[in-house]
Simulated scan of single mutants.
Amino acid sequence: MSRRRLVWTGLVAALIVAALLVWVWPPAHRWVFGPGAATNHVVVSGNIEAHQSVLSFTNVQAPITELPFDEGKAVTAGAVLARVDSRVYQQQLAIDEASLEAAARQVAVATSNLAASRSTVASDRLDFAEKQRDLQRNAGQLEAGAISRQTYDLSKTAAGQSGAVLARDEALVKVAANNIALAQANLKTAQAKVALDRVTLSFTTLRAPFSGVLAVRQAELGELAGPGVAIFTLDDLDHVWLRAYINEQDLGSIRLGEAASVTTDTYPGHVYHGRIGFIASQAEFTPKTVETHAERVTLVYRIRIDIDNPAHALLPGMPADASIALLPPEK
């Protein structure tokens, strides 16, 4: 074989290899020849996060008497997570319920007193009217000389006394009405105390505010629970998201609500479906603990990718990657 033929054979082989490289290497990631083309996807990395609530008792302080769940247990909204000794709060409720009953009886007594006072006033008015008629009749008879002056004076005194009794009993009616208002106010106060006692008594039972998984149990039976003393940490695994950061040059090519494909090293080959739920409006430095100066001064924007997690496979703190399609920048 001639030298020229060998050269041509080698050149053809090189062209074939180059063509194969161009064919198998996706142009969306890299070009072999010429300037690099922009990719049509961006991959961001971060950690899975979820809504976490640190649960504690409210407005009560007592030893823990019941802890039916351990860490890692799934609970539904309203499930009883813990109880404390409620005897003191039950006794306070009993005392205030007795006071409420007494206040209700006081209202009944005051109402009866008012009715009796009004009946007395009605009788007084009849008596006063009769005494007034007697006085007028005696006045005419006195002028006619039919009765003595003493008889007339006695009828006048009787009319005056009847009027005084009427005025007194009318004042007592007002007092009885005021007593009813006071008794009703005391009744409302007693009702409010009982309602507060029942609310406080309900605080002796700690319930799950939403369905989730108990991530941390921070108390044991017999410990003194109180406001601010953590009992459980509850994770809402139905609503998880990926916190990640995107470079400034890619910011204009993603949109709120855009779909994202999320993968983890824990479950290789499984793709979780997500959506961009938040894009920060302000840039920040690259959040790394160890980095070069060039990386440290790079500005990025925080994004949140909401992820469907029906099987609760994604857990808080789990590292994950998300692939997002880069869209044409908005004009």
Rank of each mutant, 00 (worst) to 15 (best):
V75C: 00
G226T: 10
D85F: 07
I303K: 00
E248K: 09
K331A: 10
L100M: 13
E291W: 09
K156D: 05
R302N: 04
E223Q: 15
F278G: 03
P268V: 12
Q52D: 07
A129K: 13
G46Q: 01
L237I: 05
A144P: 04
V262A: 01
G160P: 02
E220D: 14
L201D: 03
D250F: 12
A82P: 01
W31L: 14
E143G: 10
T58V: 13
E170W: 11
S53K: 06
H239Q: 11
A325V: 09
P268R: 14
A195Q: 08
P26D: 03
A18N: 06
T205D: 03
G212S: 00
Q141C: 04
L299W: 13
L314N: 01
R105N: 13
N59H: 09
F128A: 15
D236V: 00
W241P: 01
A79I: 01
I254H: 07
V17E: 04
A94F: 13
V240A: 03
T65K: 05
V7I: 15
E284V: 12
T65M: 06
M1D: 13
T58C: 09
V60W: 03
A260H: 02
A164L: 10
D238I: 00
A18Q: 06
E101T: 15
T292R: 02
A167G: 08
A171E: 06
K174P: 06
G34N: 04
